[in-house]
């Protein structure tokens, strides 16, 4: 039972990392702008490339958490990423960052701040715990399915504004078509 719960929580962490990584990989500009806002000197750096690099690390870390052979490495990388998110959140909060960072994808209206601190700390704590769990002894085969389901739910939640907008437009088009 505890093993099942751990696999479910692990899959949840995978979903968060994949959602954040894949979204940033496709749309790196918001994080790039947020970084320049925090440190204007970075305007001379290829921030979009940097954002894509972070995105790639997030995706690889998420995938590493799913396989028993790479689970400990994935957990360690999760700790590092979690601390990085938390630090960026603290800096964003202190500097009263206003640029949406698109950190978790979707909604995109939130700047670097307390949410990043919270998500970062939860990921870091989970990573520390996950590194001590013998993942091969758990029902890890369920991991990819659960991660996929969580990822779909998270994606729909983060993009709910866009999804509702599309549904409303579709409904109004249908009304015009039938009228």
């Amino acid at each position: 039972m505890a093993d099942n719960a751990f696999v479910a929580v692990n899959s949840g962490a995978v979903a968060v990392l994949l959602q954040a990584g894949l979204y940033k990989f496709a749309v790196p500009a918001p994080l790039g702008r947020a970084l320049i806002e925090l440190a204007p000197r970075m305007s001379n750096v290829n921030v979009n490339g940097l954002a894509r690099g972070v995105a790639a690390v997030e995706v690889l870390t998420g995938l590493a958490l799913l396989a028993p052979a790479t689970h400990v490495s994935g957990a360690s990388a999760t700790v590092v990423l979690g601390v990085l998110f938390a630090v960026l959140g603290v800096v964003g909060r202190l500097r009263r960052s206003a640029a949406p960072c698109g950190c978790l994808g979707g909604a995109g209206s939130r700047a670097l701040g307390l949410v990043n601190v919270a998500v970062g700390l939860v990921l870091a704590l989970f990573g520390v715990f996950a590194a001590t769990v013998p993942y091969a002894d758990t029902p890890y085969r369920l991991g990819p399915v659960l991660a996929a389901l969580f990822l779909l739910l998270l994606c729909l939640w983060m993009s709910r504004g866009l999804a509702l907008q599309l549904l409303r437009r579709k409904a109004s088009t249908a009304q015009v078509g039938s009228g």
Partner: peptide
């Protein structure tokens, strides 16, 4: 699921 995330993004 990953493709759906990319599509929404």
């Amino acid at each position: 699921a990953g493709a759906v995330v990319l599509l929404f993004a």
